[in-house]
Measured scan of single mutants.
Amino acid sequence: SEIVKHAEEALERGEFVRIEHNGRVIEIRNEEALEELRRWVEK
């Protein structure tokens, strides 16, 4: 997914991403959060 790709690229640069999706906000700061995002987006 485009969202996950964006988050992965930001993590590689040492940045973090805040994503709003279906009214929820998730902050991607590490691999664990990235995995959570993947599960969340796939639903």
Rank of each mutant, 00 (worst) to 15 (best):
residue 9 E to S: 09
residue 37 L to Q: 00
residue 22 N to V: 06
residue 8 E to W: 12
residue 42 E to A: 13
residue 21 H to W: 15
residue 1 S to W: 15
residue 25 V to N: 04
residue 21 H to I: 15
residue 36 E to M: 13
residue 41 V to L: 12
residue 39 R to D: 06
residue 38 R to S: 03
residue 5 K to V: 05
residue 7 A to T: 03
residue 1 S to R: 14
residue 14 G to K: 05
residue 38 R to M: 06
residue 1 S to K: 13
residue 36 E to D: 07
residue 20 E to Y: 15
residue 36 E to L: 12
residue 11 L to T: 01
residue 43 K to M: 14
residue 2 E to N: 12
residue 43 K to G: 12
residue 14 G to S: 04
residue 15 E to G: 10
residue 17 V to I: 14
residue 41 V to T: 05
residue 1 S to M: 13
residue 39 R to A: 13
residue 12 E to K: 15
residue 15 E to D: 10
residue 16 F to L: 09
residue 28 I to T: 00
residue 9 E to L: 13
residue 2 E to T: 10
residue 32 E to Q: 11
residue 24 R to Q: 08
residue 13 R to V: 03
residue 4 V to Q: 03
residue 28 I to G: 00
residue 31 E to D: 08
residue 8 E to I: 13
residue 29 R to M: 11
residue 21 H to C: 15
residue 15 E to R: 07
residue 18 R to E: 07
residue 2 E to R: 09
residue 9 E to Y: 08
residue 9 E to N: 09
residue 26 I to N: 01
residue 35 E to F: 06
residue 20 E to A: 08
residue 8 E to S: 12
residue 33 A to S: 13
residue 22 N to Q: 10
residue 11 L to W: 09
residue 17 V to H: 05
residue 20 E to H: 11
residue 10 A to K: 06
residue 20 E to T: 12
residue 43 K to H: 12
residue 3 I to C: 11
residue 9 E to F: 06
residue 40 W to G: 02
residue 40 W to R: 04
residue 4 V to R: 02
residue 42 E to D: 10
residue 43 K to Q: 13
residue 36 E to G: 06
residue 37 L to C: 06
residue 25 V to Y: 09
residue 8 E to A: 14
residue 30 N to C: 09
residue 10 A to I: 05
residue 12 E to M: 15
residue 4 V to D: 01
residue 8 E to H: 09
residue 11 L to Q: 02
residue 42 E to P: 02
residue 1 S to D: 10
residue 9 E to A: 14
residue 13 R to C: 08
residue 24 R to F: 14
residue 3 I to F: 07
residue 31 E to H: 14
residue 23 G to M: 02
residue 24 R to Y: 12
residue 28 I to P: 00
residue 18 R to D: 03
residue 10 A to S: 07
residue 8 E to V: 10
residue 29 R to C: 14
residue 22 N to G: 10
residue 4 V to F: 09
residue 31 E to Y: 15
residue 20 E to K: 09
residue 28 I to F: 03
residue 7 A to K: 01
residue 12 E to D: 09
residue 21 H to E: 03
residue 29 R to H: 11
residue 13 R to L: 05
residue 28 I to H: 00
residue 8 E to F: 11
residue 8 E to Y: 10
residue 5 K to T: 06
residue 16 F to G: 05
residue 33 A to W: 05
residue 31 E to K: 15
residue 33 A to N: 13
residue 33 A to E: 14
residue 29 R to P: 04
residue 39 R to N: 10
residue 9 E to G: 07
residue 22 N to E: 11
residue 38 R to F: 03
residue 2 E to S: 13
residue 33 A to Y: 04
residue 19 I to W: 10
residue 12 E to Q: 15
residue 43 K to I: 13
residue 40 W to E: 05
residue 7 A to L: 05
residue 38 R to Q: 04
residue 16 F to Q: 07
residue 8 E to M: 15
residue 36 E to N: 08
residue 13 R to F: 02
residue 11 L to D: 02
residue 26 I to S: 01
residue 31 E to Q: 15
residue 37 L to I: 03
residue 17 V to R: 03
residue 36 E to P: 01
residue 21 H to G: 01
residue 28 I to K: 00
residue 1 S to C: 15
residue 33 A to F: 05
residue 30 N to E: 04
residue 13 R to Q: 05
residue 9 E to I: 09
residue 8 E to R: 15
residue 43 K to T: 11
residue 12 E to H: 14
residue 3 I to S: 04
residue 21 H to Y: 15
residue 28 I to L: 05
residue 24 R to K: 11
residue 23 G to Q: 03
residue 35 E to N: 11
residue 36 E to Y: 12
residue 11 L to I: 07
residue 37 L to D: 00
residue 9 E to Q: 13
residue 19 I to H: 02
residue 34 L to F: 03
residue 35 E to R: 09
residue 14 G to I: 01
residue 5 K to E: 04
residue 26 I to L: 11
residue 38 R to N: 02
residue 13 R to S: 05
residue 14 G to H: 06
residue 17 V to E: 03
residue 41 V to E: 02
residue 23 G to D: 04
residue 1 S to H: 13
residue 17 V to S: 05
residue 25 V to L: 08
residue 1 S to A: 14
residue 21 H to N: 05
residue 10 A to M: 10
residue 38 R to I: 07
residue 14 G to T: 01
residue 27 E to N: 07
residue 37 L to W: 05
residue 21 H to M: 15
residue 19 I to R: 00
residue 17 V to Q: 05
residue 27 E to T: 09
residue 26 I to H: 07
residue 30 N to V: 03
residue 39 R to C: 09
residue 38 R to L: 04
residue 37 L to P: 00
residue 6 H to K: 14
residue 15 E to C: 14
residue 36 E to C: 12
residue 41 V to F: 13
residue 18 R to A: 09
residue 30 N to S: 11
residue 24 R to S: 06
residue 23 G to Y: 04
residue 31 E to C: 14
residue 25 V to K: 04
residue 43 K to A: 14
residue 41 V to K: 03
residue 40 W to Y: 06
residue 12 E to L: 15
residue 28 I to Y: 01
residue 9 E to M: 12
residue 4 V to N: 01
residue 42 E to R: 09
residue 30 N to K: 02
residue 41 V to C: 08
residue 37 L to M: 03
residue 40 W to P: 00
residue 16 F to A: 07
residue 3 I to T: 05
residue 36 E to W: 15
residue 35 E to G: 07
residue 35 E to H: 07
residue 22 N to Y: 13
residue 30 N to Q: 02
residue 12 E to W: 13
residue 16 F to W: 12
residue 20 E to R: 11
residue 42 E to I: 09
residue 33 A to L: 08
residue 35 E to Y: 06
residue 5 K to H: 06
residue 33 A to Q: 14
residue 15 E to A: 08
residue 10 A to D: 01
residue 1 S to N: 11
residue 8 E to L: 14
residue 42 E to F: 12
residue 20 E to W: 15
residue 12 E to S: 15
residue 29 R to W: 11
residue 34 L to R: 00
residue 32 E to K: 10
residue 32 E to S: 09
residue 12 E to A: 15
residue 31 E to S: 12
residue 22 N to C: 14
residue 19 I to L: 07
residue 40 W to D: 02
residue 35 E to D: 11
residue 31 E to N: 11
residue 34 L to E: 01
residue 36 E to R: 12
residue 22 N to L: 12
residue 33 A to R: 05
residue 34 L to S: 00
residue 34 L to G: 00
residue 7 A to V: 08
residue 13 R to N: 06
residue 14 G to E: 03
residue 15 E to S: 10
residue 24 R to P: 00
residue 31 E to W: 15
residue 23 G to E: 02
residue 30 N to W: 05
residue 42 E to C: 15
residue 16 F to D: 03
residue 35 E to S: 08
residue 30 N to M: 03
residue 10 A to E: 02
residue 10 A to C: 13
residue 41 V to R: 03
residue 28 I to A: 01
residue 14 G to A: 04
residue 4 V to S: 02
residue 29 R to I: 14
residue 6 H to W: 15
residue 16 F to V: 13
residue 13 R to Y: 02
